[in-house]
Design a protein around this nucleic acid. Structure first.
Lengths: 148, 148
DNA sequence: TATTGTTATACTCTATAACTATA
DNA sequence: TATAGTTATAGAGTATAACAATA
């Protein structure tokens, strides 16, 4: 056997498959949330707010792994849709505390439905046991990469 | 129980986890192939050529799911690195047939090593059985989405 | 006239840097 | 002086459309 790795070696890796399938999944999901006036990053922000893991925009930027200026833009758009409120933190008036509105929770619910519909399309015909194992594996892997 | 889905429902989906982990994996891989002068799409093109699944630039564009004009740009850069050759198809002189050079195969091998190194980093501490199941599940899912 | 590859152009996404206000 | 948020600007990446060569 040769130690020169070809395309088969690359295709066997997690990063290659996660990268290609991730782009595919993101496109499918984006197409479905587009009619809600949202992009995937909006859904990520709504989910982070619902999970209550962060409040200030700086914390959210770190959580989502994006620049603080992008949070401003995403929050502006969600606010225009009536999905979030910005409240000045009375203890530190530099901080804007973002909170979900009922409309924001409704939109998050629609995003979850969109993701489930995209799942059904993506995994159509896949063995249910294998699909469950895949979901569990992804969840376990993702849990190791939550920003602190 | 409520039928209003929150962030937990979204985080349980394949598309959400594939999307977030895919972006993470792509970044890690990109950082490692950067020193080779390559981006992930270059690696994808090298792998497609090595697999022999396509020859003309139009076929490669369809295979990778990108615009034909992007193949021109990627092939230009790979040609400048001495990784691919462009040969006019004598049967149809409109066609440019791309072929890997020895240097191209060497670069592909380095890409595979970069992906394996990124895998080790990404899956560090993950149970080996779970990791194997994950790799197998991704491979099975990806096989369902190869462009025809 | 249709198709392959190429070039020219424009658009989307996101980061970096400068700025304002609060601390 | 340092930090949270905002605004202004710039860069990367990629698509679309116009073009040239060949069928």
């Amino acid at each position: 056997m040769s130690d020169v790795k070809g395309s088969a070696a690359l295709r066997a890796t997690l990063v290659f498959n996660l990268g290609t399938l991730g782009a595919l999944a993101a496109d499918r999901f984006a197409a479905r949330v587009e009619e809600l006036g949202l992009k995937p990053k909006h859904a990520g922000l709504l989910a982070a707010l619902d999970a209550g893991s962060a409040a200030s925009q700086q914390e959210l930027a770190a959580r989502l792994g994006v620049a603080p200026s992008l949070i401003v833009s995403l929050a502006d758009q969600l606010q225009a849709l009536g999905a979030v409120e910005r409240l000045r933190d009375p203890d530190d008036r530099r901080r804007q505390v973002l909170t979900l509105t009922p409309e924001g929770r409704r939109l998050l619910s629609r995003c979850a439905e969109a993701a489930e519909a995209a799942d059904a399309e993506l995994a159509a015909g896949l063995d249910p046991d294998r699909r469950a194992a895949l979901a569990e594996g992804l969840r376990a892997l993702g849990a190791r990469h939550v920003p602190h």
